[in-house]
Simulated scan of single mutants.
Amino acid sequence: MKYNGGFLISRIKQVHGRLLNNFLSCKNVRAFNAEQGRILHILWAKENISIKELSVQTGLAINTLTVMLERMEQTGLIYKKSDERDRRKTLINLTEYAYSLKKEYSLISEEITEIFYKDFSDNEVEQFEIYLMRILKNLENVNNCKK
């Protein structure tokens, strides 16, 4: 039997990103894109986090994240500061402007979630998310190439 889970997850991610960007555009939210929304989503939940922690939470490589954070800083969404306990560490925080965008992003996210789970029962959604968490855990636990 041929399994297509990885391919389907990749396609879902692509389509989800395009749909989110489309919704943002339709709602005239031009301050950030879908990928930056992923960063904002984490920072709305917890600020004052290091780039390394943000990388882990978003699943973005540090070099990719660094470029995105530079753009977000230029557009006034975030600011960086040195950790008072460890000056080598840079902490990321949101601006008031970024906080002002949270409600609109949440509404768009809810709309997409409704589309995502259309025709699913509550039980199916719960079970599906359990499966996704298991897949994520499996993938995160692999750190070496198999030979």
Rank of each mutant, 00 (worst) to 15 (best):
L54A: 04
A98C: 09
S55H: 02
S25R: 14
N21P: 10
F120W: 03
D122A: 13
Y131S: 11
A45M: 11
K52D: 11
E114W: 10
E110R: 14
E111D: 14
S82C: 08
R30G: 01
S82K: 10
V125L: 13
E96M: 05
Y79N: 04
Q36S: 06
K81P: 00
I115D: 00
N63P: 08
N48Q: 14
D122P: 04
L20F: 15
C26P: 00
F116W: 09
I39L: 07
E114T: 14
Y131C: 11
Q14F: 11
M133T: 13
K80P: 00
L107F: 08
M68W: 04
E47P: 04
E124C: 11
M72R: 03
E35K: 09
T58F: 02
L77N: 05
W44S: 03
I130K: 15
K81A: 02
L20A: 07
A31C: 03
I39A: 01
T90I: 13
E70R: 09
F128Y: 14
F116A: 07
K118T: 11
I108R: 05
D119G: 08
N93L: 13
I92S: 02
H41L: 13
Y105M: 12
E104A: 14
R88G: 03
F23E: 08
S82G: 06
R88L: 07
A34H: 10
V67W: 01
S106N: 07
E35G: 06
K102N: 04
Q14D: 06
I49A: 03
M133Q: 15
Y131R: 13
I78V: 14
S109Q: 13
S82M: 04
D119L: 14
Y79T: 03
C26I: 08
L65P: 01
E53G: 05
K102T: 00
Y117D: 06
T66L: 09
S25M: 12
R85T: 07
N33F: 06
L69T: 00
G76Q: 09
G17V: 05
I130M: 14
F23V: 08
E53K: 10
S121E: 14
Y79P: 01
E96N: 13
A34L: 05
K80V: 01
N21W: 09
N63C: 11
E35D: 07
R18P: 00
T64I: 08
D119N: 15
N123K: 15
E53T: 09
A34R: 08
T75L: 00
N63A: 13
T58L: 02
K102R: 15
Y105F: 15
G17C: 06
N28G: 10
L19K: 11
S100I: 09
L91N: 01
L77D: 02
R38Y: 00
N33Y: 06
N123E: 15
Q36R: 08
R87V: 10
L40M: 09
R18S: 06
I115H: 04
F23K: 13
I78E: 01
E110Y: 07
G59H: 05
L60T: 00
D122V: 12
S106T: 10
Y79H: 13
L24A: 09
I108Y: 06
T64K: 12
E111G: 11
I78G: 01
S121T: 15
S100Y: 07
